[in-house]
C-alpha cells in the first residue's frame, strides 16, 4: 500500500550498495589503522615519557596502559555476548569481529609495555601469559577463517549435512541387499563396515581426518573379485567416497571451531587472573 511514513529505504539502500568484503577488509581496514595508531602512540609514549623510578606497571604511564588494556580485554570478552544477542541495536557482528581482531592484536603492544618487561613467577605474569595465549589462539582463528571456508564449500558440493548422511544411509541400504549372495567371511566385512559408527575415531580422527580403522576400507581391501562381489565393491567404493566427504566436512569444521575451545576458557581464566592481578596491585599499594 502507499507509504508516506518513514521507512528504512535509505538504510537498506546503503546496505545494498555496500562493499562485499570480509571482516578483515571491513571499511578499508579501519580498525587496523586504529589499532596501529594505538600501538604507535603507546610505543612513542613509552620511549618519550620519563618514567620514574623505571618503566613498569606502577608508574602513571604504566597505570594508563594497564587501564587501556583492562578495558580492551573486557570489551573483547563481550564479543561472546554480542554474537548471541542480535537485537536490539543496529550493529553488525562483522564490524565487531574486525575491531576485535585488530584491537586484540594491539594488546600485544599495550600489554607488553604495561609490564615494562618485568617478568616473574607471579599472578601478574600469569595474566600476561594468559593474554598472549588468548591472542595466539585468536591468530590461529583468523588464519583458519581466512583460508578454510573455500575448501569447506568445495567439499560440500551443494549438499547439506543432512543430505550427506541420507546419501550414506541410501548406499547402506543398497549394500545390505547386494551383500546377500556373498560368502560368510565377505558378508562379515560388509556387516562390520555397516555397523561401524561414522564418527568413530574420536576427536583426533575428526581433526586430522585420519581413520586407520575404517571398516569400509578394510572390507574393500578384503573383497575378492567375482560376479557377486562386483556390485558390492562398487558400492563400497561409493561408500568410501561418501565417508570421505562427511569426514572432510567434519574435519574442516573442527579446524574452524577447535581453537574457540581454548580461546574462550582461556579468556575466562584471563579475566580471573586479571581480577587477582588488579586486586593484589591495589592491596599492596
Amino acid at each position: 500500500m502507499a507509504s508516506t511514513a518513514k521507512n528504512r529505504f535509505s538504510q537498506d539502500e546503503k546496505r545494498r550498495d555496500s562493499d562485499h568484503v570480509s571482516f578483515l577488509k571491513h571499511r578499508g581496514f579501519r580498525w587496523l589503522w586504529i589499532a596501529l595508531a594505538l600501538s604507535g602512540v603507546s610505543i612513542a609514549g613509552y620511549v618519550l615519557i620519563d618514567q620514574q623510578p623505571r618503566p613498569n606497571g606502577g608508574s602513571w604511564y604504566g597505570y594508563t596502559l594497564g587501564t587501556i588494556g583492562l578495558l580492551l580485554i573486557i570489551w573483547l570478552s563481550l564479543l561472546g555476548v554480542r554474537k548471541r544477542r542480535i537485537n536490539p541495536g543496529a550493529w553488525s557482528l562483522k564490524a565487531w569481529t574486525s575491531a576485535h581482531v585488530y584491537l586484540g592484536l594491539s594488546l600485544v603492544v599495550v600489554g607488553t609495555l604495561h609490564t615494562g618487561f618485568q617478568i616473574g613467577w607471579n599472578v601478574h605474569t600469569l595474566a600476561y601469559v594468559l593474554m598472549l595465549l588468548v591472542i595466539a589462539t585468536g591468530i590461529y582463528g583468523v588464519i583458519v577463517y581466512a583460508t578454510l571456508p573455500a575448501s569447506l564449500s568445495a567439499n560440500r558440493k551443494e549438499m547439506t549435512r543432512a543430505q550427506m548422511l541420507e546419501a550414506l544411509t541410501a548406499i547402506d541400504r543398497q549394500l545390505e541387499s547386494a551383500a546377500q549372495p556373498l560368502g560368510r567371511a565377505e558378508a562379515d566385512w560388509v556387516i562390520a563396515a555397516l555397523a561401524q559408527d561414522t564418527f568413530h575415531g574420536g576427536a583426533w580422527g575428526r581433526l586430522t581426518g585420519s581413520y586407520p580403522h575404517c571398516a569400509t576400507r578394510r572390507a574393500l581391501r578384503g573383497m575378492p573379485q567375482g560376479a557377486a562381489e562386483e556390485r558390492v565393491i562398487a558400492l563400497l567404493e561409493k561408500r568410501t567416497q561418501q565417508l570421505a566427504q562427511i569426514r572432510g566436512a567434519l574435519r574442516i569444521r573442527a579446524l574452524l571451531e577447535v581453537w574457540l575451545f581454548i580461546h574462550i576458557p582461556l579468556t575466562i581464566a584471563l579475566i580471573a587472573a586479571l581480577t587477582a592481578h588488579v586486586i593484589s596491585v591495589f592491596y599492596y599499594w
Binding site: D12, N87, G89, A90, K94, W96
Partner: peptide, 13 residues
C-alpha cells in the same frame, strides 16, 4: 532497527 539480522549476525561478512 538495524535491518536484516542474518547479515548483521555474520561474523565474517
Amino acid at each position: 532497527d538495524g535491518g536484516p539480522a542474518c547479515v548483521r549476525a555474520c561474523p565474517t561478512g
